[in-house]
């Protein structure tokens, strides 16, 4: 099962960029600049409104045709598709958590004569991040599941090797796919425990 490394690198890549996009888009949607707000709103709606598999194919087949640019490799196409898709979903969480920080906190920070940037960095953000953690853990598991799609654009991940073994020996199909499922499950297990732990962290020391 050589595909394991591909699956893991795609997961790490898309998780990194996904969180990055989520924070950028989430903060942009709260910006006072109407152009920025509308633009990121459009991005979020488009990527949440269409399905990941369509976006993946679109990035892989259509973008090079449309603009004549290559994304480098199918690794990048896969990572960017997953990151853009889940970044859009998670930006809503970022936005929601920041809005959920009590208004008194903003007022207190203003009263302490903090600048806008200080207010966000020192007061609002640390409180919002802890609210985001459990959901981010959940989305990490979702992203792991999404990485299985990259085999459709020709990447040699776990599922791809599973398919190859199946096509060379049809009667082995049940064993092969059960093995593949268990591989994904073993990868997901630490993430499941991580999510539970994050839930504990975000609940700790918070009233109600």
């Amino acid at each position: 099962m050589k595909g394991l490394t591909i699956t893991i690198t795609v997961l790490l890549g898309s998780a990194f960029f996904g969180y990055l996009f989520a924070f950028i888009a989430g903060l942009c949607r709260l910006s006072s600049n109407i152009f920025l707000r509308k633009f990121t709103g459009f991005y979020v709606e488009v990527f949440r409104g269409t399905s990941l598999i369509v976006q993946l194919f679109w990035l892989y087949y259509a973008i090079p045709m449309l603009f004549g640019i290559e994304l480098g490799s199918n690794w990048w196409a896969g990572v960017i598709a997953i990151a853009l898709n889940y970044g859009a979903y998670m930006s809503e969480i970022v936005r929601g958590s920041i809005l959920a920080v009590a208004k008194g906190q903003t007022e207190a920070a203003t009263a302490l004569n903090m600048s806008r940037f200080q207010r966000m960095r020192l007061v609002i953000f640390p409180q919002a991040v802890r609210m985001m953690l459990p959901e981010f853990g959940n989305y990490l598991i979702q992203m792991l599941k999404a990485t299985s799609l990259v085999s459709l654009i020709g990447m040699t991940d776990i599922l791809y090797y599973g398919d190859i073994i199946r096509s060379s020996n049809l009667s082995q199909a049940p064993t092969v796919y059960i093995l593949v499922l268990f591989f994904y499950f073993i990868l997901a297990l630490p993430l499941i425990f991580l999510t539970r732990k994050l839930e504990g962290i975000s609940k700790k020391g918070v009233a109600n």
Partner: peptide, 10 residues
């Protein structure tokens, strides 16, 4: 926690 695509193939 396992991909629906793999389940489908299974």
């Amino acid at each position: 926690s396992t991909p629906p695509l793999v389940q489908l193939f299974f």
